[in-house]
Write a protein that binds this DNA or RNA. Structure first.
Lengths: 160, 160
DNA sequence: AGTATAAGTTGCACAGTGCAACCGAAGGGG
DNA sequence: CCCCTTCGGTTGCACTGTGCAACTTATACT
């Protein structure tokens, strides 16, 4: 997923950046508040959409697909989770038949995790449900605004 | 917290809005992915910042301050949580001495919840910590971009 | 070879959550 | 005026997600 955008002032040489001030503080506050509000609701909402696929397992399965398969340790690093948590979630995904394990050819200690056929189908289904829910929420938005918001969020998360 | 902004095309009469297309789908996908990535990390991060004040209790305490005091039921409605969850979280806040209960003068069944003196102090402290962490993350951002992002998020959450 | 390191699993504890059952106080017809 | 409903709140129960620590096994390095 790549976005090629113009118009977002990511070039950090603009003279007005990082100017402390009340307006800026308010913007930071608002971003803080709205992002946490989103975080709070996301968990509750996604739990209802697809019973077998929580927010976490969905994200993991998605990452396995996007990365073309990786080890549990890589998942833990990517999602900033403890390896025990990853171990349990991947075990659950395996029990559901959504991922398959194969020995890592490069390192006999590790296992490569990949989505199974069924995993890919369930993922596509869940993805479509979620995308539809998002699209509905964003229905009234201008294309330019959508692209700017997408780029802002990518920039924000990339910084962390 | 109010932001008065220009430049955000919230007027939904623009001719290019809601035009389905691959670019728009990619933007929606990216927003979906980045927001969930944020949600995933927010919980883990905020848990470390202030041990007594989780993301949930912090948000509740903040809402009690901003609303000037409200009932548990109001918190549940605002945060889309079960009343039992709110009951437990507010009980925890009370045990910590961060909120006080007083009988609701209008309805003897309910109790008004307010931050205590100490609650206000702890809240201000936690707020400052979080704001600093956010400000650091957003240090390289142009003021205009910050305000646009804040407005986008407000608009997004308001729609839900 | 022997030791340190890395991947993964498992036991344990704990927070957050929802549902259902319950209690007590208002409130609204009969 | 009394009963019955409704509403605010608490508690018991179960379940998920999580981290830490201990352990197992396999690799890597000196």
């Amino acid at each position: 997923m790549q976005l090629i955008l113009g118009g977002v002032t990511g070039d950090s040489d603009s003279g007005r950046r990082a100017a402390a001030g009340p307006a800026r503080d308010e913007a930071v506050d608002a971003i803080h508040r709205e992002l946490t509000a989103f975080a709070r609701r996301a968990r509750a909402r996604t739990a209802r959409l697809h019973p077998d696929l929580s927010l976490v397992t969905y994200s993991m399965l998605d990452h396995l697909k996007e990365s073309g398969g990786c080890r549990a340790t890589d998942l833990a690093a990517h999602f900033l989770l403890d390896k025990s948590t990853v171990s349990r979630q991947t075990a659950a995904l395996e029990r559901l038949g959504l991922v398959v394990r194969e020995p890592d050819p490069d390192d006999q200690r590790g296992q490569l995790l990949r989505p199974s056929e069924r995993g890919l189908r369930v993922l596509a289904d869940a993805h479509e449900q979620r995308r539809a829910s998002f699209a509905e929420r964003l229905a009234g938005w201008d294309d330019d605004d959508l692209e700017r918001l997408a780029e802002y969020l990518r920039r924000y998360n990339a910084a962390g």
